[in-house]
Every structure is written in C-alpha cells, then in structure tokens.
Amino acid sequence: MSELGVIIIGAIFINNIVLSQFLGICPFLGVSKKLSSAIGMGIAVTFVMALAGTLTWIIQSYILNPLGIAYLQTIAFILVIAALVQFVEMVIKKTSPGLYKALGVYLPLITTNCAVLGIAIVSIQKNYSLIEAVVNNVANAVGFTLALILMAGIRERIEESDIPKCFHGFPIALFTASLMSIAFLGFTGLL
C-alpha cells in the first residue's frame, strides 16, 4: 500500500508530468486559456491515460514479451492509443455535445499528446505490476490535470493585467509555467 502511495505522491507533486518531465506541453499551453476547457481536457486525458496504461501493459506482457518482439513497442502502443482516442471522441460526442464542442480540435490531438505514450512507456520501463502501472498512469494524469487547472486559473487573471506587448500569449504563459515549476521543485524533499 505504501509503495502505491509513493508512486502517487511522486507522480503528482515531485515529478509532475508537465512541470518537471515536460510531457504534454502542447495541450498545457493550448487549452489553458479558460478554466472550463482545462477541466474538460483534464478529464479526457485522465480517462484516456487510465485506459491506455491498462491496455499497453497487457499488450506488452502478454503479446510483445512472450513473442520476443518488444522492439515493436512504439508502433503497437501508438496504434492502441490512436484507436482509444477515436473511441473516447465518439463517446463524448454522443454523451455530451457541449463538452465535445468545448474541447474541439484538442480531442484528436490527445493522440499526439506525448504524455499518454510517454507514461505508458515509463510504466513498462520501471517494471511495474499491472496495478502499479495503472496507479502510475492515473496519478500522472491527475498531476497533468492539476497543472492544467492551476495554469488556467492564473492565465485568466493574466489576460486582464498590463504586460509588455511582446510577452502576450506564449511567452508570459511560459514564464508562469517556470514559476509554477520552481514552486513544485519545493516538493522534492517530500519523500
């Protein structure tokens, strides 16, 4: 139990997926302008990452490893993730058109969200068991959602403030991310 706790705290705070591992920067900068779309994106990514983590672990352990074709990992994983994203897109389109509209172009982009593939590969590299792998995936997704929501909250306020013209948009967002990253560095001593 305590091992799972270490994985969870480590993934959310210490090695935050966005602020210290630099995975999923595109949606982090792209969908963080409004709090509501940040929450929607966070939920979608969490859902996809939990499913992707489970599926890729099963594929690695029961198909790729026994057949000795572990080198096909990248190809196999990216196909599974692409199919999964399509599936999630169809489900969201059917069940909540409002959310579908809000997420817009970013839903298909989850496929090329390096966070999903990256964490799936990390879970395999660390030799996690199925439960640990799923916990690791979900904890990382929660870390992503946390960073995204914090960022959106800050950016909604930055919009109102008077900053030099050349810092509008991406530059000020990156500086904000840098300050958040310094704050998260403070968690290093936690474990």
């Binding site: 602020l19 210290s20 630099f22 030099p164 013209k165 050349c166 810092f167 509008h168 948009g169 991406f170 530059p171 000020i172 967002a173 990156l174 500086f175 991310a177 840098s178 300050l179 990253s181 310094i182 560095l185």
Partner: peptide, 22 residues
C-alpha cells in the same frame, strides 16, 4: 539546467521573436 530554466529560456526567446515580428 533545471526544469524552470527551460521554461524561462523558451519564454525569453519567444518574446524576442514577437518583438522582432512587431
């Protein structure tokens, strides 16, 4: 060379590019 430095360096470069474009 720690993570925050990456964000700072990239932010400065993009701000400079914006300035040049303006």
């Amino acid at each position: 060379i720690l993570p925050p430095g990456g964000f700072i360096a990239f932010g400065c470069i993009l701000a400079l590019m914006n300035k040049l474009q303006q």
